[in-house]
């Protein structure tokens, strides 16, 4: 049986999305920022609710994606700003800032959704799909949109490869060399927000962080150098995205996010056991008589 056009487009969109997440995630992991994606993903929920409300007020079709994603991006950025403000108190460490932002923003989203259920146009939009992801519900136009954002992120990563790599490797040295590390970090955060938002409908906001963390974590166990790690990470991300979308097409009730994450988990597990750059492998090499 030949899969329908819609299915193919959704598969392609999810694959591209995984590619983008793996690429951006590679830098985010090396810069120690991967978990920020968790805060961004959860912080998007109130934005999705507000976007749906705005769409209803403006008379735009309820299931139309752009207003929702714009809202998600807005509150995602707000979440990042809140994290940075908490960090500036000097008392709240980054881990606590992430946890506070993700839980409080998510809670606000839940509260808004409960109120908005009274608005018929919003109730129809199926917003809870954004929480765990439902690639099967994606329409071709939405998949194209997500894919386009993803492709843009990948392109941005390639253009910014040198400054990103320098900031990840040794931020202090890069700063001494005249690189504006603050601006590079900001760009990285912006890319993270874009990827998380683009991935909302396909992967879901609870699990989108896995798509940022698992592919580069696995890739690092195979490649000792950055270009190889980046390429592998993107490839692994694409594979996870495709696997998740395929699983979702087969079992429509299974949240896509779960499929994506389990594919990533298998990749990481295998990499930990047999990856040539894994600590286990390195220890074996060292133990061999020379």
């Amino acid at each position: 049986m030949i899969p329908a056009y819609n299915t193919l487009v959704v598969l392609a969109g999810c694959g591209l999305l995984g590619l983008a997440a793996g690429t951006v995630g590679c830098f985010a992991l090396l810069r120690g920022r991967a978990l920020v994606a968790d805060a961004i993903g959860h912080a998007a929920l109130p934005g999705v609710a507000l976007g749906a409300l705005a769409a209803a007020a403006l008379g735009i079709e309820a299931r139309s994606l752009p207003p929702l994603l714009i809202g998600a991006a807005a509150t995602g950025v707000l979440g990042v700003l809140a994290m940075q403000a908490l960090g500036r108190t000097g008392r709240i460490r980054e881990d606590a800032a992430i946890a506070v932002v993700l839980s409080a923003f998510y809670a606000a989203g839940v509260a808004m959704l409960s109120v908005l259920q009274a608005v018929p146009e919003v109730a129809q939009a199926g917003l809870s799909h954004f929480i765990l992801g439902q690639a099967a519900a994606l329409r071709a136009a939405d998949a194209w949109g997500a894919g386009a954002i993803a492709a843009g992120c990948v392109a941005a990563c390639l253009v910014l490869f040198r400054p990103l790599a320098a900031a990840c490797f040794d931020a202090e040295f890069a700063r001494v060399q005249g690189l504006r590390v603050g601006a590079v970090d900001l760009a990285l955060l912006g890319l993270l927000v874009l990827v998380c938002v683009a991935g909302l409908q396909a992967v879901g906001l609870v699990l989108v962080v896995a798509l940022i963390v698992l592919p580069p974590a696995a890739a690092r166990l195979w490649a000792g150098r950055l270009p190889g790690m980046l390429a592998l990470s993107g490839g692994f991300g694409a594979a996870c995205g495709l696997a998740g979308a395929a699983a979702s097409a087969h079992w429509p009730d299974l949240p896509t996010g779960a499929g994506v994450v389990l594919a990533g988990a298998v990749l990481l597990g295998v990499s930990m056991l047999v990856g040539p750059e894994s600590p286990r492998a390195l220890r074996r090499v060292a133990a061999e008589p020379r």
Partner: peptide, 11 residues
């Protein structure tokens, strides 16, 4: 996997 605690937790 030589991951820092935060990333390992997320994974």
């Amino acid at each position: 996997a030589r991951l820092e605690a935060g990333a390992a937790t997320g994974a």
